[in-house]
Structure formats: C-alpha cells, structure tokens
Nucleic acid binder design. Structure first.
Lengths: 216, 216, 216, 216
DNA sequence: CATGAATGAGGCTTCATTCAT
DNA sequence: GATGAATGAAGCCTCATTCAT
C-alpha cells in the first residue's frame, strides 16, 4: 500500500527548498531570483526560509556550497607516476566534461559567480578551479618531463584553456544548439564535442616527432 | 554654427548616460543595476532616462546594441583564398583576442546574456558569435582542403572552442589573476596567453606530416 | 508525597515562564517584547505559552497582575488615629520607597502602562495609585486637623507629588546614575534620596510655628 | 480668492510628516508605531519617508531632535546673582511646568526614552535634564549661601525631585484626571498643581526662622 | 503534555516609474 | 526639455500563532 500524503518531514522540506532555490537562483541569478517565487515553487511557507536559513543570501550560500560540494565528492580519476600522461589527460578531461554535463546548475552558478567576481562564493571559486582540473597540471608536467608533451606548454595556461572549453561549451549550450541546429542535450552529441576537445588538446600539446628526433 | 547655450548638449548627455549605464549594467547585470545609481553616476536627472529611452529595459537594450555594434565595426583582418590558412587563423584569433581585451564591457555583457539565454539580447547573440570568429570557419575549411589542417576537425566545434578560450579567459580574468599571482591587466601578460592559445590550436589542427605522407 | 517524575513540574514551569516574561516585558515593553525571546529565555517551548496563557497579551496581563499583587500583599505600616502624623507620614513614604526599590519591575511596568494610558492594566492603575500611598491622604488630613500640617495643603495633590518623586526616582535611576556619577543600586545611596524626599516633604507641609501662633 | 488645493510643497510635506510621526510615536512608542500608519495619517506615500529620512529609526530620531530643540529654544527665565533665590526658584519651576504643559509630546517622548534607557535619544537625555531645571542648581546653591535656604539640601537631589513632580504630573495626567474627577487639560486646574508644588518646595527648603536665629 | 515545524498577516524598505512645476 | 517630489507595486523579512506528531 503506497504511503499517503505525509506532512512534516523536515528533512524533505529542507531538501525541497534547496532544490527549488538551486533551480531559481541558477536560472535568474541572485538578484533576479525572488524569495516569494522560491517559496511558492517549493510549496513552502516563505517564513520557513528564514527559520531554516536566515536570509536570502544565506540560502544562496547554502545552494552554492551544496553544488560545489558535488564537485569535491565527484569520483575524479586518479593518475599515478607510472601512468601514460596522454591517457591520463584524456581521462581527466573526460571526467570533468561529464561532471559539467551532469551538473548544469554548477555550470551556471559558476557563471554567475564569475560575473560578480565571486562576491558571494568568495575564494571558493579558486578552490573549485583547482579541484576540477587541478591535477591536470601534474599530469602535463610529467608529460613534459617524459618528453611526450611539448616543452613550450605553460601548464597553468593550458589548464585554464581546457577549463574554458568545457565550461564554456556548457555555459552556452543553448546558443550552440540554435547555431548548429543540433540537440545538444543528447549525450552522444555532447560526446562529439568532447572528442574534439581531446583531439585538439592532445595534438596541440604532443611533442613533434621531428622535435624529439632532433632532441634525441 | 549652432548657438552654444550653457549646458544643454543632448548628444553629450545621451552619451554620458549610455557610458554610465554600460558601466553599471556590466558590473551588476540587469537585475542588479539600479536606475537611481545610473542616473546619479551620470549626473543626470532620473526622469531623463525615461524621456530619452523609455524604460530601464530599453536603456539596457541600447547599451547592448552599442556595445555589440563595436564588434561589427571593428577592423577584422581579411583573408583571401590565396592566403596561408595557418597565418590567417593566427591573425583572426589575434584580432578577436585583442578586441575582447579592448572591450571588457562586451565580454561581460555577453556573459550576462549567456546566462539569461539572451533574454534581452535575443538572437543577436548568434550573430555575434558568427561575427566574431565566423570567418574562421572558412579559413579552417580551406586549410583542410589544402591539406595543411587535419581532416577530422569539426569546423564549427573548433571555432566554438577558440571562442570559449578567448572569451573565457577575459571572463575570469580576475580569478586567474589571483590564481596565478599575476597582473593580467598588463598587455604583455595577456599576450602570453594569446600565444599559448594560438600555439595549441595550430598544433592541434595541423595535419601530421606522416599522415599527409600516408595520404599523398 | 506525590511521585517525582523527571522534569515535569507545571508549577515551576509556569513560574519560570512568568519570571522570564516579566523580565522581558519590563525591559522592552509589550510591543518590543518577542514571544520567541521569552520562550527561549525561559527554556520553554513556544507552544506552551499558548497552552498555559492563550496569547501574548494574556501572558502580559498575568505578569501585570502578579507584579501588582505584590504591592497589595506588601506589609504596609498601619497608622492609628492616636499616632503622630509626622512619624506616620515618614513611615509610609519610607515603606513605599523601599517597595519600589525592591520591585524595579513594578516601577517599569507602571511606567509602560502610564504611557499607554493603561491600555492593558486598565483601571487597576488607579487602584495601585491608591493602594500605594492612598493611606497618606488620611494621615495628612489628620495632621491638618491636629494643626501640625499646614492648612493650605491639597491632600491628593501632595500624595501625587510624593508618588512622583519616588516612582520618578526609580524610573530614571539609570539616568541619575550617569548624571550624578554615583552607583544608585547601592542601598545607602538610595537612602540619601529618601531622606531628602522626607525632609523636603515634612518641612514643606509642617505648619509654621508663627502661623499656628497667629491662629492660636 | 483663497488658494486652491496646491500640491508639491516639499516644505509642508516634510513638516506634515514630522508632525504626524510625532503624534504616532508619542502615542505608541517606537515599537508600537507603524510606518504605514504614519504615512496614511500624513497622507503621504510610504516611500517618501525613506526618501526624506532613510528609515523608521531616523524619522524617530528627527522627531526626538525637533521636540527636544523646543526645550532648548524655550525662553527660560534668567536669574542674576542679585536676584531673590526664592522668587527665582518659583519662576524657574513655573517656566518648566508650563513648558511641559505646552509640550505634551515632549513629556511622552521623554517617558518612552526613560523606559528604554535612552536607547535612541542617547546622552541627549542628560542634556535635557540639565537644560530644563539645570539652572535651579545655581539658584538653590546661592539661596543656601545667603541663608534663606536650608543647609541640608542636596542640590541635585532637590532638582531631580522637582523635575519628577512636574514631569510625573503630566506623564500621568490622564490617570489623575480619573482619580480626581477633574478636567486637567484645563489650565487653571493645572495651575493649582503648580501652586502646590511651589508651596511645598519653597516651604520645604526655606531655612527655619529659629534655625537662622540660632545661627545668627 | 510537549515539541519543532509550519503559517499568514503584516512590518520595514526598495525600486522602476510618473507627474507637477 | 529638466527637475525633484511623489507613487504603487513589490521585495525581503518578522512575528504571533497554530498544528501534526
């Protein structure tokens, strides 16, 4: 027998509120979001927001934190010193790309925060940049040492570029959809983009055979 | 020669207002911007905004249009069918990169509009994407045909990637400044980034010698 | 002997609540007091207030009543027809003064009620005025008859004056503390004030020797 | 021809608002007053309060200041070293008494502030106490030196007592009206109270003939 | 009884916009 | 046209009170 309409489930109430808030803040940004709208959509009394979180701002912070925690808890692929830098690079980029694909709210929150210079997320943004593709730095550096990646790669710049390609793609997904006449919510279509990114990057940083010949 | 009254110069007033509005909208977004603040900073009477533009929204639209027009009027390098696709690619990316560097407001407005799905800029965003790096498509395609660029490049995806690398870099300039401990308002430091982008891209898309050998 | 369960002692709970409510209402007045604050400080569940008293207003009424009852139950000195009006006057004023000193909450509640025209205490205020120094009227009148007090004393006005001197002193205790650079919570310092009041009053109402001589 | 309904008179608007605010704050205290009510009674748009004053609190402050200024601007009688201390005392008390009678809002605002320990009026309360009957200290002291006032008068305590008699009378005017079955808005009836106060005080502090005889 | 969650009315404040001069 | 005053709708938040458990 299925449960009937149950009330008073603070756990669920709070989650419902956070989910709704995430949706609204994500869609309209902090300034554009309306507390009333969040309450209405969450089917919650407006006052509860203030009992549970204290203010619109605190609610937003909680939404940010929760969304960002997802990145930290996401299962990032490990890379060891013995592993192949090329394969590792591809794996890490793949993981990041699909994380963003699975967390569109994260992408947008990051976007809003970037525009407000992290007025609310503060220094966490830096940690996020680092948490996402940070390990890529180590991998690239190892690749350079092993001679399979070009010498003239500025590691942190490269990481930033990869970040922008992935984040940017999902930031403007809707735009590209219209521009390319393609349904980009489709995972296979997304994968085409990912493949391109990896192809360009790997080819872009791979040491030239003749170069290594010259060197060797 | 028209008479010179004391203060009234509707042309200048309007420009001052647009400049101020651009600054404020750029900084805070449409929802975060305040008509009062714009009027105060422009040292203009609030009512004038409504006489000159009709509404906050219309003022914003005008700011958008003016900012976007700058891209259309910017002196984009031409490329002919005889030119070297490699050099052309580099030239176009350079031009786009420096345009963004010179027009930080454009970068931010584009950012806000991307997040609101172009609620206000509408389809212009598409034109902008096209206007900026659009010709790159032609160049790349020509490069592929001439065999100097890899076969497996998806042209429009590549263009998007370049766009994101440039736009994203300037979108998160402040973040990278802190992350890299570097003054990125400095043009020379910006150039380092540009060089990396071009290096990676060109290497990323260049046809492999052995590949062309195999083909040839 | 009734069983002793863990915590439930409705008697004590109610007292604790009333004590806390008295403190909070006294400090901030009815409008400034917060039901939440009272409940929190009394370490009681908010709902209990409504179970025990029904409303914020009813709780306030109960606080008022309890505080006012203390005046009625206070051990006021008796005066008989044979007694000395001068000594009786001093005794009664002393008693009233120390009652106020011992019941600062009473003083403040009276103050709030005076400002709201007894919107809540209602006519009880009148009874209180009467209950406090009321008997002074009889004493003074007897003193006038016996010739030891001046003829031209308007009895009820005098009583009011004494009342204001005592009540007013304690109402603005904190102010006088700062003004006089003196710790007026100190009982001995309070006594100095009382002595002054009694001195002035007794000298103020005592029949002049020459007057009585003239009359006699 | 009488002027028609004229609008847009910022001077009058502000005064109307302050007058209304004074009335409402005076009646209900800061916490009990409602911004909406003030706006409605002043026939003003609620927003104007925030344009003109910034906040409910700032409006209250302005009301306080304006009311208190009236005391400072009131024409207090001067007293010279040659004057008769007895007459001077009477004159000063008379002046203070009638000032309070003419400024019932002042009396009530002072009352609210006393209860909140001047949370909003701050240290001004001290100045007010001083500004009102402050000069009485000098007069009494001179009277003591000249031998016409008793030695054992504590000057500042006496001043406080006079203050309380006057202020207290007007604070509880409504109560006394009911208690005494007398219309105390009537100036002549008020004067009876004033006469009593002065009589008691002067008799209370006058040096006893026999005392001065003993001394002389 | 006792509790913590929930509620709705209303409080203060802001803001885009209009209007009288 | 240009200005400062004015406005109404709406925004965020608080608070006495109720309710399910």
């Amino acid at each position: 027998m299925p449960e009937k309409k149950r009330k008073r489930d603070p756990q669920k109430t709070k989650k419902r509120l956070l989910d709704t808030a995430e949706r609204v803040f994500t869609e309209r940004g902090f300034d554009g979001a309306r507390v009333d709208e969040i309450a209405a959509q969450a089917k919650i009394n407006k006052g509860m927001i203030y009992i549970l979180f204290g203010s619109k701002e605190a609610l937003y912070d909680e939404v940010l934190k929760r969304s960002f925690r997802r990145l930290f808890k996401s299962n990032r692929p490990e890379s060891s010193a013995e592993a192949d830098p090329v394969a590792d690079t591809a794996a890490l980029v793949r993981w990041y790309f699909w994380f963003l694909s699975d967390n569109p709210h994260f992408v947008r929150l990051f976007g809003w925060e970037s525009l407000t210079s992290g007025k609310r997320a503060g220094k966490v943004l830096l940690d996020l940049l680092d948490e996402g593709l940070g390990p890529l730095q180590v991998i690239i550096r190892r690749g350079k040492e092993q001679g399979c990646f070009r010498d003239d790669i500025a590691v942190h710049k490269l990481v930033a570029m990869v970040n922008e390609m992935c984040l940017g793609f999902f930031s403007r997904l809707k735009l590209f959809e219209v521009l390319w006449h393609k349904d980009l919510s489709n995972r296979e279509h997304q994968e085409e983009m990912l493949d391109q990114i990896i192809t360009i990057i790997l080819n872009g940083i791979r040491a030239n055979p003749q170069d290594s010949a010259r060197r060797g």
